[in-house]
């Protein structure tokens, strides 16, 4: 069964239709790469999945639960969206770490606030609350170790390199255990010599069969890591399939053109 089903997602900004009916599904434990030139709608699609944009039309289902249905206004309410978006995690192109918090505090912030909210509603007693905080601290340590930043936990974002910041951002997204982790061009803002360390972390996640959607311009990486590739062009899915197949034997003329432009 597919963990994610996306049906007929459409999105307009003013008069420009950026997504013109996107359909795809994703199996649990798979990594999906989305490639395509700038302006093809890749980022908008990811932002729709994370409810940073509201699609004009379409359905989004995770584990067979309808998270969004454009014909059902209930799924558009803010409090509903807040819970449902946690099925997804998002790693931004520009990291967006919180500058006033250390790496460790960045990772711990969201689960800590969630725990505090429960404590305020009195659904947790003081002991439960305390043990939760300990767990969060432990998880955050573990995740930062996993992304190779054990020795930089107490550094502020401006004291870290771009690659290190992006790895903190990945740990920050992972601590909420999203069903699907989305990456929006995670290495585009990095110096070339720093992309490797970030890609290595993502590769490590795919080896652990983490379900992921990766929007990327790193073609080689997409081919190596992804189980499935989607090529988008002009707001539609132009071609999709097995990575080796799509990269070596593209069927659509537009895919061919795109790949040739990338090689040069």
């Amino acid at each position: 069964m597919a963990i994610l089903e996306v049906k007929n997602i459409r999105k307009k900004f003013d008069d420009i239709e950026v997504l013109k009916g996107i359909d795809f599904s994703l199996e649990k434990g798979q990594a999906l790469s989305i490639i395509g030139s700038s302006g093809s709608g890749k980022t908008t699609l990811l932002r729709c999945l994370n409810f940073l944009e509201t699609p004009d039309e379409g359905v989004i289902k995770v584990n067979d639960e309808i998270l969004f249905d454009s014909s059902d206004p209930l799924t558009r309410s803010e409090s509903q969206i807040r819970k449902k978006r946690l099925h997804f995690g998002l790693v931004f192109q520009s990291f967006n770490l919180f500058p006033q918090y250390t790496a460790l505090e960045n990772v711990m912030l969201a689960p800590k606030l969630a725990a505090k909210e429960k404590r305020n509603k009195k659904s947790d007693d003081i002991y439960e609350h305390g043990s939760k905080l300990l767990d969060i601290y432990h998880d955050a340590h573990e995740l930062l170790k996993q992304v190779g930043l054990s020795d930089r936990m107490n550094n502020y974002p401006h004291q870290l390199s771009g690659g290190q910041q992006q790895r903190v951002a990945i740990a920050r997204a992972l601590i909420l255990k999203p069903d699907i982790l989305c990456f929006d061009e995670p290495t585009s803002a990095l110096d070339p010599e720093l992309t490797g360390e970030v890609l290595k972390v993502i590769r490590g996640l795919s080896e652990k069969n983490y379900t992921m959607i990766i929007v990327t311009h790193e073609m080689e990486f997409a081919r190596d890591v992804a189980n499935h590739v989607i090529f988008m062009d002009g707001g539609v899915i132009c071609e999709q399939g097995n990575p080796r197949e799509l990269f070596e034997n593209p069927k659509e003329e537009r895919t061919k053109q795109f790949l040739i432009r990338y090689k040069n």
Partner: peptide, 15 residues
């Protein structure tokens, strides 16, 4: 304050 800060908060489920 860059819009990305608020977006990062939103995708982490903050109010």
């Amino acid at each position: 304050v860059p819009a990305g800060q608020q977006e990062a908060g939103l995708v982490l489920g903050l109010t």
